[in-house]
Design a protein around this nucleic acid. Structure first.
Length: 441
RNA sequence: CGGGGAGUAGCUCAGCCUGGUAGAGCACUACGUUCGGGACGUAGGGGCCGGAGGUUCGAAUCCUCUCUCCCCGACCA
């Protein structure tokens, strides 16, 4: 993509409403634009990031055997009345009336709808287990939206739902998602710690929140510091290996880690040595629940067992805040100059800077490199604009692409270009061939 | 929902107290000088001062109502 043609409205100054760093940087980097309180438009750069996050989430859900569907944003109130949540959810649920006076709502979550879909299709234990998910916009009419997309009213969420015959089966599904979540966040270079959590209005009694430690987080958390050193999972996970999954989950739940609702001071002190105690704040990026028959019973999702008896299916639900992750990743990875994207999330891998757009040699070399990078399938933002060098450097640092390739008249005289790594700032001068080799390796 | 704050150019803000026909910096346009870490000069363009009422000869400024946004708290992916 050529910078001169790209819709990238970056800001030098920070809009006054933004308080936390991720919100400030997202606005300054031209990723998002506020439409109204807690509701945002995603501009090209931000949208690419959102799509990358979504892609990783999708790949890991698919790998875990979860099947993607797509449910609507607008739902009928009927199912919610059956489950009892039409009243329970309160004012956070955006209620809508259509032209015929029918009560509708903008879905804050999808347990009711998925249960209804499931029950109409599945009647026998032979069809279990099932794991379904979708990635769809949700709306929760928060009293006080804040922190940009981190607590918006409209947000993109991946929500999965598991259906099993009994608790043991449901626990397997829970473990699968637990492991899938570890892998998902690891691929985003995030240290997300699974913590015992309260279940809130979703209900149920087995639940973990995946929390990124950050001072700007909204959750108060208590955990063993050793978690920070826990190894990220390797690439090979065999999801059919039930014992193996349980072992991983046991390992990641062996240390004390609780959100404030579940925190028990005495237990904390008993299980965690004083110098290992971490008390701080965190950002919730995922939440998994087992809730048994909370929805299947009232909504009538029963299956026939081998002995011909009927049983309400055991369910769990598993959420990842896809849009929130964009902010959370920035909170976890930035410096004074701007965003530092993990390579898996970066909107482009390389920023190619033409330091002197009017110079024939610079432009020729840039065009060659640009063509070759694109030919190699590398996503590159080529700053071919007439801006001065300093402005280009500053903007490139702000938007945080992992690699910057700088082509200037000074280097060209010596036959070199400069390759700079955004994280850490290491730079080296080398021939454009070697630079290309490095980037396409 | 309680408490606080703010709406003036695309952005950051001044002007308001003490009413008199709208300002700065950045951004934008043109030209010139510059050009390896957000340059400088000159000349421009851009505003129903959030909205509605009221007071007044006259309202960005005073009064009333209203809408929106932000912050702290309680609540939440």
């Amino acid at each position: 993509m050529r910078r001169s043609a790209y819709f990238l409205p970056t800001l030098k100054e920070t809009p006054s409403e933004a308080q936390i760093v991720s919100h400030r940087l997202m606005l300054r980097a031209g990723m998002i634009r506020q439409a109204s309180a807690g509701i945002y438009s995603w501009l090209p750069l931000g949208f690419r990031v959102l799509k990358n996050i979504e892609r990783i989430v999708r790949e890991e859900q698919d790998a875990a055997g979860c099947q993607e569907i797509l449910m609507p944003t607008i739902q009928s109130a009927d199912l919610w009345k059956q489950s009892g949540r039409y009243e329970d959810y309160g004012k956070e649920m955006l209620r809508i009336e259509d032209r015929h006076g029918r009560e509708m709502l903008y879905g804050p979550t999808n347990e009711e709808l998925i249960t209804d879909i499931f029950k109409s299709a599945v009647k026998s234990y032979r069809d279990l287990p099932k794991l379904l998910y979708h990635i769809q916009w949700k709306f929760r009419d928060e009293v006080r939206p804040r922190f940009g997309i981190m607590r918006g009213r409209e947000f993109l969420m991946k929500d999965s739902y598991s259906f099993d015959l009994d608790y043991e089966g449901a626990k397997e599904a829970y473990n699968k998602m637990f492991v899938a979540y570890l892998r998902t966040f690891a691929r985003m270079d995030l240290k997300a710690i699974p913590m015992e959590a309260d279940t809130g209005p979703i209900g149920g009694n087995l639940s973990h929140e995946f929390i990124i430690l950050a001072d700007t987080g909204e959750s108060e958390v208590y955990c063993n510091r050793d978690f920070v050193d826990f190894d990220v999972l390797g690439s090979d996970v065999e999801y059919r290996d039930v014992e193996g999954l349980a072992t991983i989950v046991d390992h990641f739940t062996s240390l004390y880690a609780c959100t404030d609702e579940k925190h028990d001071a005495a237990e904390f002190e008993r299980r965690v040595p004083e110098d290992r105690r971490h008390v701080g704040r965190g950002i919730e990026v995922g939440h998994i629940f087992y809730f048994g028959d909370k929805y299947s019973a009232p909504l009538g999702a029963f299956v026939t067992k081998p002995d011909d008896s009927q049983v309400a299916v055991h369910m769990g639900s598993y959420g990842i805040g896809v849009s929130r992750l964009a902010g959370a990743i920035i909170e976890a990875s930035h410096d004074a100059a701007g965003i530092v994207w993990p390579e898996s999330i970066a909107p482009f891998k390389v920023g190619l800077i033409n330091l002197k757009a009017g110079d024939a040699d610079c432009t020729r070399v840039c065009e060659e490199i640009y063509g070759q990078l694109r030919g190699a399938g590398i996503e590159v933002l080529y700053d071919d604009s007439e801006e001065r060098g300093g402005a280009k450097f500053a903007e490139m640092d702000l938007i945080g692409l992992p690699w910057q390739l700088v082509v200037g008249p000074r280097g060209i005289k010596q036959g070199v270009v400069e390759l700079k790594q955004r994280r850490g700032g290491d730079r080296q001068e080398l021939s454009s061939e070697s630079a290309l080799a490095r980037l396409t390796a």
